[in-house]
Design a protein around this nucleic acid. Structure first.
Lengths: 148, 148
DNA sequence: TAATCAGGTGGGAAAAAGTGGGAAATCTGT
DNA sequence: ACAGATTTCCCACTTTTTCCCACCTGATTA
């Protein structure tokens, strides 16, 4: 399971080292996609297969209008990239994905169960502050057996 | 069962020794997470598996499609850490968790049935005072079968 | 009362993780 | 095909983390 946050640098060659704790689980290739909210999602190949199956399955929760689904799939598939992890655990982040979330030289790399999220470090700490305030309330809902 | 409170120091290397009374029950690895209220939660691996199942089962598979779920998962997973207990019973507390509750060099370590809570020592003693006054009232509500 | 033990604390050295940069290899456009 | 630019591969440096040992303090006991 992927958990925890790490702040790493992105060098002038667009390289970013994955936290050691994540490497074993990620294998040697990963899929990096635009995510939701101001971050990128990184999946293992295996997880990506699962995700993409569910996204293209019209019987899932994405049963909104087809045009919307097309758009969403363009978003998730069209801007995804398969990236190799180099011999010392670094990956290259495509410029078009860096630009999307305003990544410069410091990134927050966050494990969220079965995916990794990549944030601009500032955006991450801001987001933490916001969510911190909601957490009690969200937990309360879950405690009452409601889904979020 | 984990009970009792202890005040321990956190050294410059972020190490904190677990009370001996807790060690047997915790095994050799633990999960430390942001808790609710101004403290951290420490779970055994076993307990964490239970907790995380409940969190991710409370929704469907593509939980990342729901904004609230994303927020809550980021909170619980993204800010959790798997930590080894060293040969003499100490754990490392990640900076990002220390920061969350303003931990400096003294922590209150509190056993609460099946989890350990970690408090800033000052915050803990304040919290005790507050709860002391409410305790009778809370007990009354629980006794009436109401959820709190 | 001194010796012993257990729990907790502190610090140095070795190992690991993360970062940076040069040279070889590849690609691009003319 | 060639020059220039970009990417890849490899090596080296720096910082952080880990491992191990030693010390301190308070309680217990001979």
């Amino acid at each position: 399971m992927l958990i925890g946050e790490y702040i790493h640098t992105i060098d002038e060659k667009n390289r970013m080292s994955l936290p050691v704790k994540f490497r074993k689980e990620m294998g040697k290739k990963i899929i990096i996609t635009p995510g939701l909210d101001s971050c990128l999602f990184i999946f293992t190949i295996k997880e990506w297969v699962k995700v993409s199956k569910k996204l293209s399955d019209s019987n899932n929760d994405l049963s909104f209008l087809k045009a919307d689904q097309r758009s969403f799939n363009r978003y998730m598939f069209g801007r995804a990239a398969e990236v190799e992890i180099d011999s010392i655990g670094r990956i290259l982040i495509p410029d078009f994905l860096k630009d999307r979330i305003g990544l410069k030289d410091k990134a927050a790399i966050v494990g969220v169960e079965d995916r990794i999220e990549v944030w601009n470090d500032k955006a991450w700490s801001q987001n933490k502050d916001v969510v911190e305030k909601q957490a009690g309330e969200l937990a309360e809902k879950l405690g009452n057996g409601k889904s979020l």
